[in-house]
Simulated scan of single mutants.
Amino acid sequence: MTNPGSTLLAVHLDRSSMLRPLLPALRAGLVDLLDAQAAEPGSLQVVLSTGDDLTRSLADGSHPPATPVDAGGARTALATKLRPVDGPDLRIGAARLLDAVGDELAARAEDDRPERVVVLLVGEAAVGDPSHVRERIAHQRSTYAWEVALVDVTSGGIPAAKRPEPAGPAEAATEQAEGATDDGQGTAAVALAERMDGPAAAARFGVPAPATITAGPGAAGVTAALSAATAFVSRARAVQPHEPVDGFSDDERAAAAVADTRPAWRRFLRIA
């Protein structure tokens, strides 16, 4: 039997370079989330991963383990200023978080395991092939009743090197036309990406559509989405495993869909 009334909150925050202008808003929203969860009833442990916290290689070739702390400890460990990193993207960081948390819980006695595990993934869901993380999410949700939510942060563009493969001749022709502005090596500095809606991002990661919200590309939208995610985590903690959790509301989705009003040159240079 698990520990009644206890929750482990596992959070991965993408710090890839495309999100550079939004990192201050992401950090502030994450701090507010941790403070709010610390005030909720029940025991809470937090595993917080940002950027490459869990994916970097140690001297022996292994990766850092998941180390749960209380909400205050997670807040203290969060850097005062989040800096972008070259990798990993959201799908890789999320997969490593799920593996690390699963390993940490498997090593515990059953009565020391939390009653609820809530996973919050925050980052750009449009990048890369998420099939591996999708399989992990499906397994943990169906087998262990983990609750997973996704805040899909729209930055407005993705690096050309990380564009999805063309789906067919028409898309390939479009990419070839866009390549006219590439540099001499045939790689564009920045390739604009279409905004993914909630259901599309949810399908890519295997997260239920009601538990997925699209944020941005404006910073105010990111703030609103993380506020909505805070409320979602509270609802998830309040119900029993396998009980339904109310998803994001239409009002929350509308508040999170804020345009980026920065001048075009600032967006191109990824300056807040």
Score class of each variant (00 low, 15 high):
Asn3Tyr: 12
Pro4Met: 03
Gly5Val: 02
Leu13Asp: 06
Asp14Glu: 07
Asp14Gly: 11
Met18Ile: 13
Leu22His: 05
Leu23Glu: 03
Leu26Cys: 12
Arg27Asn: 07
Leu33Cys: 15
Asp35Trp: 05
Gln37Ile: 09
Ser43Cys: 05
Gln45Pro: 08
Val46Trp: 05
Asp52Val: 11
Asp53His: 07
Asp53Gly: 08
Leu58Gln: 10
Ser62Trp: 03
His63Cys: 08
Pro65Asn: 09
Thr67Ile: 15
Arg75Met: 04
Ala77Val: 12
Pro84Gly: 12
Asp89Thr: 07
Leu98Ala: 12
Glu104Cys: 13
Glu110Gly: 06
Glu110Asp: 04
Asp111Val: 13
Asp111Glu: 14
Asp112His: 07
Asp112Met: 02
Arg113Gln: 12
Pro114Glu: 03
Leu121Ser: 03
Gly128Tyr: 04
Asp129Gly: 14
Glu135Leu: 05
Ala138Phe: 13
Ala138Leu: 05
Gln140Pro: 03
Glu147Gln: 09
Val148Arg: 00
Ala149Asp: 00
Leu150Met: 02
Val151Trp: 01
Thr154His: 06
Ala160Met: 00
Lys162Gln: 13
Ala167His: 15
Gly168His: 07
Glu171Tyr: 14
Ala173Asn: 03
Glu175Met: 11
Gly184Arg: 07
Ala201Ser: 06
Ala203Trp: 12
Ile213Thr: 10
Gly216Tyr: 03
Gly221Phe: 01
Gly221Cys: 02
Ala228Pro: 09
Ala229Gln: 09
Arg235Lys: 09
Arg235Ser: 13
Val239Asn: 02
Pro244Arg: 08
Ala254Phe: 14
Ala254Thr: 07
Ala255Ile: 01
Ala257Trp: 04
Thr261Cys: 08
